[in-house]
Design a protein around this nucleic acid. Structure first.
Lengths: 141, 141
DNA sequence: TATCAAATGATAATATCTCTCATTTGATAA
DNA sequence: TTATCAAATGAGAGATATTATCATTTGATA
């Protein structure tokens, strides 16, 4: 699934399409659970046993700098990475360290129109994201 | 200013009121710019030359665990701390590493009523915060 | 003012992430 | 297809933020 995607994203930004970048992007795109650099490293190692940690960090930085993936902060001091590029919000569980994406077009509209009317002095808004903290309840979670 | 505050907060949670805790809280409450652990350490050292880094981290963790201060994530992998306890949002500058508090009661109301009507499946909301990214423009910033 | 759980200070250890640089490689054009 | 070269990689050292350990000290309570 999404085989093309991992190859196409670097091209968009005129970045070299290396096997390492494809593999790393593939992991992030397939894995919806916001993996850490270490998790990505472990996964990529399965198919690229020689890739180094330094490369993983550099690729992640490059991809994030070019907006091809997003860095996500956690309560802990570990970065996580998100391959979803459409505007979305995050659900943070206060029990576990889990983060889930939250898509809500209505909410996006409300926020967008709110800040079209109301500007913040001395600040130009580029983007906003809602961090919703709480607890996952029963069910599949 | 706010001299009592730093003494009272630990009492609320039945934490021991130690000089180190008072000093650290004082720095965070006085300093509106979301200081780092290092910045806090440096400030506190001026009045408590023997305090250790480990103590600063432990106090910060204890205070944050008890909700007396808040941990704030940055794009970098450094934690920052916020002494403001009333509900507020954050402005992130994409140029500098600066974070500013953003208070907006109207926005809080809109979000609150939105999520009263619309629930998220399998998730119980405890709190939400809007992370607004953009750039500080001319003026005092 | 005696007691003791809790907090502190000193220091070592861990973990995440960055840097350096020699080598390799993807993209471009001859 | 092949030559060229800027850019990317791998290996390993290094930097920095944070945590752990533990003997000593201290704040709160009785």
């Amino acid at each position: 699934m999404e085989r093309e995607e991992a190859r196409n994203r670097p091209v968009e930004k005129k970045l070299k399409v290396t096997p390492q970048r494809i593999a790393i992007l593939q992991v992030i795109i397939d894995n919806k659970s916001h993996p850490t650099a270490e998790g990505i490293f472990d996964s990529v190692r399965e198919t690229h046993p020689n890739i180094s940690f330094g490369t993983v960090y550099k690729v992640l930085d490059t991809l994030a700098d070019n907006g091809l993936i997003k860095k996500v902060q956690t309560e802990k001091d570990i970065m996580r990475y998100d391959g979803v590029r459409e505007s979305h919000h995050h659900l943070y569980c206060t029990d576990s360290d889990r983060i889930e994406d939250y898509f809500d077009k209505d909410l996006n509209e409300i926020l967008k129109s709110y800040f079209e009317k109301k500007s913040i002095s001395n600040f130009t808004i580029e983007d906003f994201k809602l961090y919703i903290t709480g607890k996952f309840t029963e069910g599949k979670h």
